[in-house]
């Protein structure tokens, strides 16, 4: 169990709803759900996950911490906003789903190897390095995340698109060496560190 997770368990004891309210983006809305299920039915990825938003909300209220935070349901959200638009209680469901994903990631409870999570992690690592997303390196990292053989297979299957992008000057093969950076990478990283500090304080990870 991660240290953050241990601390959270200690802090909130059995009150998972309180934990979500304080630490998850828009988590204070969860209790307003009335279990109509329109979000569940509206989600275009509904078939892909185990728990619908409304069910996750009920699980939060029922204190099912482990099940919620290890669920992969919130990682499936593609931000289509159908649920938000239709929710009769105007819950910011999309945001809550992202908030839950983020929180479970922070506590290191999120499912290992969950593709969305991996993609996000690679994206973030790529981004913070130079302050810009290096699309070539990012793509390669994604292709090879599941090993060398799979990486080659991925590369071959994307060959045509890659060549097209190069032709259209949307992809520069030279980016493989270094790539262009932001002018003040140190400043960017400081800024991100500050943001994280604020966020942690706001969410109660630090005092």
């Amino acid at each position: 169990m991660s240290e953050l997770n241990q601390k959270a368990v200690a802090k909130y004891e059995n009150n998972f709803l309180r934990e979500v309210e304080e630490r998850v983006e828009d988590g204070e809305w969860v209790k307003m759900c009335m279990q109509c299920g329109v979000c569940a039915g509206s989600c275009p990825l509904g078939n892909a996950w185990e728990h619908s938003p409304q069910k996750l909300f009920r699980m939060i209220m029922a204190g099912k911490r482990e099940e919620v935070l290890t669920s992969d349901a919130m990682w499936m959200c593609t931000s289509c906003y159908s649920c938000i638009v239709r929710c009769p209680r105007k819950l910011p469901i999309t945001h809550i789903m992202h908030g839950l994903a983020h929180y479970s990631h922070r506590l290191e409870l999120a499912p290992k190897g969950q593709p969305t999570r991996e993609l996000a992690r690679i994206f973030w690592q790529n981004l913070v390095k130079t302050g810009r997303v290096n699309e070539l390196k990012f793509s390669l990292a994604v292709y090879f995340k599941d090993g060398f053989v799979q990486g080659i297979k991925n590369l071959l299957s994307m060959q045509g698109i890659a060549l097209g992008l190069v032709k259209a000057r949307r992809l520069n093969p030279m980016e493989i060496i270094g790539g262009h950076k932001c002018r003040d990478i140190g400043g960017i990283q400081k800024m991100l560190a500050k943001a994280r500090e604020i966020e942690d304080r706001r969410q109660g990870f630090t005092s």
């Binding site: 709803l17 209790k31 307003m32 009335m34 279990q35 009920r58 209220m61 029922a62």
Partner: peptide
């Protein structure tokens, strides 16, 4: 009531 944190369980 929901806003005040009362939990409703069907």
């Amino acid at each position: 009531a929901q806003h005040k944190g009362v939990i409703f369980a069907k």
